[in-house]
């Protein structure tokens, strides 16, 4: 389909707060992105009329119970069927920060067996504990399955900021090894925290800013069409958003975050 016909649904509820800059990122790429309150999505059957779904960052419903938990249940309860169809059609779903937490809580990621009924992983409280806003380096691990990173070469290092208190990706301790193997087998691993030179953090703080298992920053579904990551690509979209652009004379036009949105749009244009 044509780029200008692509409709991106950016979902928000009370407490979502990164919708505007996320929308800006898509609009800049020439697609039709719109922010919808979950009530509108229900009433106007927005999912049926969209080619992509994004759950942006924020504190959905105050992140009470657990980060993303309430929205995850709400999504399944209110939109479950529509969402299942949406995913079955291969339409991409992107979860950024709180959106990643929602996708994990909803059992959509890692989603080893399709849409699960319970979470197979968790985004737990950071170690060291506390909210943290800083720029990190991400090493691209995916071998080509993830449709959100087709424009990123394997092994490339991206610079994107994080801002969260619950971003420590973990599996159940007893299944840790097995699940990690699955991630590799299915080519679901997308980003790992690393240093400027691409060396894995191996848990070292603050290179790994939250204590994530295996330095995991972002994963996708076995189909590669659902993707969640803790860092905020929309905050690294333009060059002037970079923390050190003043050292470059004038800012570069774009930051690394743009590649993710570009890849996603590219996939939609080619597939539908």
């Amino acid at each position: 389909m044509k780029k200008e016909d692509v409709r991106v649904c950016i979902l928000r509820v009370g407490g979502t707060n990164c919708d505007v800059e996320t929308k800006r990122a898509f609009t800049e790429l020439g697609v039709r992105a719109k922010v919808y309150h979950i009530n509108q999505v229900l009433k106007q059957r927005v999912l049926q009329n969209s080619e992509a779904l994004v759950i942006p960052g924020g504190f959905s419903y105050g992140d009470y119970v657990r980060a993303g938990a309430i929205l995850a249940k709400g999504l399944l309860a209110k939109l479950g069927k529509d969402l299942e169809r949406f995913i079955d059609e291969g339409k991409p779903v992107l979860g950024i920060c709180n959106g990643f937490q929602v996708l994990v809580e909803a059992g959509l990621l890692p989603g080893f067996n399709g849409m699960g009924s319970h979470p197979e992983a968790a985004l737990a409280t950071n170690i060291p504990v506390g909210y943290r806003c800083r720029w990190v380096y991400l090493r691209h691990e995916n071998r080509g399955n993830c449709v959100f990173t087709s424009k990123v070469s394997r092994g490339a290092v991206l610079k994107i900021p994080i801002a969260h208190a619950e971003g420590r990706f973990i599996f159940p301790r007893d299944k840790e090894r097995r699940y990690l193997e699955k991630l590799y087998e299915n080519d679901q691993l997308v980003f790992r925290y690393c240093d400027e030179d691409g060396e894995y953090a191996e848990g070292r703080y603050p290179i790994n800013p939250n204590g994530s298992f295996h330095d995991i920053a972002g994963i996708c579904s076995p189909t590669g069409t659902i993707f969640g990551l803790m860092p905020h690509p929309e905050r690294a979209y333009y060059g002037w958003q970079l923390p050190d652009w003043t050292r470059m004379g004038s800012p570069p036009t774009y930051g690394d975050g743009r590649l993710i949105f570009e890849s996603m749009v590219d996939y939609v244009v080619k597939s539908f």
Partner: peptide, 12 residues
């Protein structure tokens, strides 16, 4: 760093 100074994506 415990304050989000990047949200809204407009911090130059």
């Amino acid at each position: 760093r415990t304050y989000d100074h990047e949200v809204k994506g407009n911090t130059v």
